[in-house]
C-alpha cells in the first residue's frame, strides 16, 4: 500500500486538508472524501464530461486530474456554483426548458456552459453545440440544452444592455 499524501486546497470557498492516495482522482476525492456527490462519474476515461469541475477557474475533467495534482488549487463544484448563485439564471433556464431529464450529466453540463458564457457574449447554436461536444447527455438529444443556453444568453445580454 502506498502511503497517502497530504494536500491542502480550497473547495467551494472552504479550506480542505486531506490525506489522499496518489491514485485517487479528483472526482473520487470530491465524492468519497468530501461528500460532494454532485460531481458524477460517467466513464472515468475522460470522454463523457459528467465529472466536469472548475480547477483554478478553468473547467477540467475531474477523472483526469489526480487529487494530489490539485494541492494548492481552488476547486469549484456544482454545489459551490449553486450556493454562490453564479449560475442561478442558467439553472432556471434549464428548469424552464426541461433541459435535463435524468439529471446525471447536468452538473457537468452546467459548469461547461458557464465557461462558454464567460468567454463569449453571444455564441451561435453551432458554437454552443461545439463547446458542449465533450459532455454526453443520453436523455435530451441536446436541443433543449442549446435552447436553454440561448435563453440565458439573451437574458444576460438584456440585463447588461
Amino acid at each position: 500500500m502506498i502511503a497517502p499524501v497530504s494536500i491542502t486546497l480550497m473547495v467551494n470557498d472552504e479550506h480542505v486538508n486531506a490525506h489522499v492516495s496518489p491514485r485517487t482522482h479528483l472526482a473520487d476525492f470530491l465524492r468519497d472524501h468530501l461528500g460532494l456527490t454532485g460531481t458524477h462519474l460517467g466513464c472515468e476515461h475522460g470522454v463523457c464530461g459528467a465529472c466536469t469541475v472548475r480547477l483554478d477557474g478553468d473547467i477540467v475533467r475531474g477523472c483526469l486530474v489526480l487529487a494530489v495534482q490539485a494541492d494548492g488549487a481552488v476547486v469549484e463544484t456544482i454545489e459551490g456554483l449553486s450556493d454562490s448563485g453564479e449560475i442561478a439564471d442558467l439553472q432556471e433556464a434549464f428548469r424552464n426548458r426541461n433541459a435535463l431529464q435524468c439529471g446525471y450529466c447536468t452538473p457537468g453540463m452546467l459548469i461547461a456552459v458557464q465557461e462558454l458564457l464567460r468567454q463569449q457574449s453571444n455564441p451561435s447554436r453551432e458554437t454552443i453545440r461545439e463547446h458542449l461536444s465533450g459532455n454526453y447527455c443520453r436523455c435530451t438529444g441536446y436541443h433543449a440544452i442549446v435552447d436553454a443556453v440561448e435563453a440565458t444568453v439573451r437574458a444576460r445580454n438584456g440585463a447588461n444592455a
Partner: peptide, 16 residues
C-alpha cells in the same frame, strides 16, 4: 409545467 424535481438535480443534490 416545469418538473418539481429538477432543481435538486441541477444543484448536484440528487441521490443516485
Amino acid at each position: 409545467v416545469p418538473r418539481p424535481n429538477l432543481t435538486r438535480l441541477m444543484q448536484g443534490r440528487g441521490q443516485y
